[in-house]
Design a protein around this nucleic acid. Structure first.
Lengths: 225, 225
DNA sequence: AATTATAAATTGGTCTGACAATATTATATC
DNA sequence: GATATAATATTGTCAGACCAATTTATAATT
């Protein structure tokens, strides 16, 4: 392998990143496969270990690979989620408005309703109903929180579009991580569970507008809290 | 400042990342502000320059800061977009289906239509109409491509929700980057421009269903190509 | 022979110190 | 005052060493 020279604008790190990505493609690697060690890459590309480490580090930070001490680097499952914790960090620092997160949840979940009804797959309806069956186990505010999250996640998941699920889950996850845990009364919990039930029923009845209307109110309640 | 010791599970790098993030918050830094130099952090936290470099590198890779040789590190504008090129790299390697990208565009742009109509802001309608005004300048397939992209981007932008715009633009950008440039006949171009026009007109008439129907067909044409 | 304990080798993590490449700042020159 | 030049500051790359965690090979035990 030819050593890499640094005559161009690109930094060595950038070049090595490209090389490693090419290596992954050329060797047909996929999820779980192991990459060569740092020292191997050092020899292969004729650059210092620092550069190789920074390149591998970049690939790890952007979710491409997973590195463990004493073990090496393996290709990851594609996962947007991890990438974005820092996005929200920055977004918040630069004056990001939490209202936007709430309104984005409504947008995404509304389109999920449309999509689920459009796809019309029995399997997905069943998955939604399955959530309802767990509702008699709700005996505390903490448990409701879990169930609530499950409901919203299943709503997104039932679209069956993996990209959609990953991208929209980011918002849901962020919301549940930063939202303060409110002490809900058992009446409020009951009301919210009822809304969940109604939303799912409307979906199964293929009444998109009806479902979205209830959802809008449901998320409106959350906003008030 | 107390030197950091490594008694816990977390790696030094992780710890320093947290420290730097705290530094950013405590000093109230925001977009464009400069961070201390590598050597300063080295002194502050009592760790080697390697660790500081890897921590800063992480923050750069995840979009928090921007580093330039001889200059230093500054806080970035929050920007999801850049982060995700590697997500798509991995997604593709693991057998990602391009159909999903197309279907996701339809989902996102449909919800954009709903949202624009719901918000009902004259300013946003005007922005959409402004795109139409540029349609007499379309004299080639390449120019149409530009205009087409502009149209879809404006559709997302008119929702006015910055998070929504950023997250959905990812898909649009990815699409236009990887989609092969088809040689469209001038009849086909005319037809597509007409569809754009109709979609915008329906939106202004607050006919969400009508607009979404045309959009669905419009993106369906793209799929065939 | 199979299992378990121990030692060796592998591999990523951290440290140190040096020099190169780039950007900024101070200085000298006109 | 404007412009070129030199000095300084800052990140980028290199080399080699040792530390920490994991895996693999070897020895001991049953």
């Amino acid at each position: 392998m030819e050593p890499i020279s640094n005559t161009e604008r690109k930094s060595l790190k950038q070049t090595v990143i490209q090389e490693i990505k090419s290596y992954i493609i050329e060797h047909g690697l996929s999820e779980g496969d192991k990459l060569p060690t740092e020292r191997k890459f050092t020899e292969m590309y004729g650059v210092s270990r620092s550069v190789v480490r920074e390149a591998l580090s970049y690939l790890e930070n952007t979710g491409v690979i997973s590195i463990r001490q004493g073990q090496g680097a393996t290709l990851s499952r594609s996962n947007i989620d991890k990438l974005l914790s820092n996005f929200f960090f920055l977004w918040k620092i630069n004056g990001g408005d939490f209202e936007e997160v709430l309104s984005l949840r409504l947008i995404f979940e509304s389109s999920a309703i449309d999509e689920i009804i459009r796809n019309d797959e029995a399997e997905q309806f069943a998955a939604l109903e399955a959530v309802l069956k767990r509702y008699d186990t709700v005996d505390s505010a903490a448990r409701f929180r879990e169930i609530d999250r499950e409901f919203h996640e299943q709503l997104l998941r039932s679209t069956g579009n993996d990209l959609f699920i990953q991208m929209t889950s980011i918002i849901t996850n962020y919301f549940f991580e930063v939202a303060p845990s409110i002490d809900l009364s058992s009446e409020e919990i009951k009301k919210m569970l009822k809304e969940h039930r109604e939303i799912i029923e409307k979906i199964i009845d293929k009444d998109a507008e009806g479902a979205k209307k209830i959802l809008s109110g449901h998320l409106g309640n959350v906003r008030k809290d």
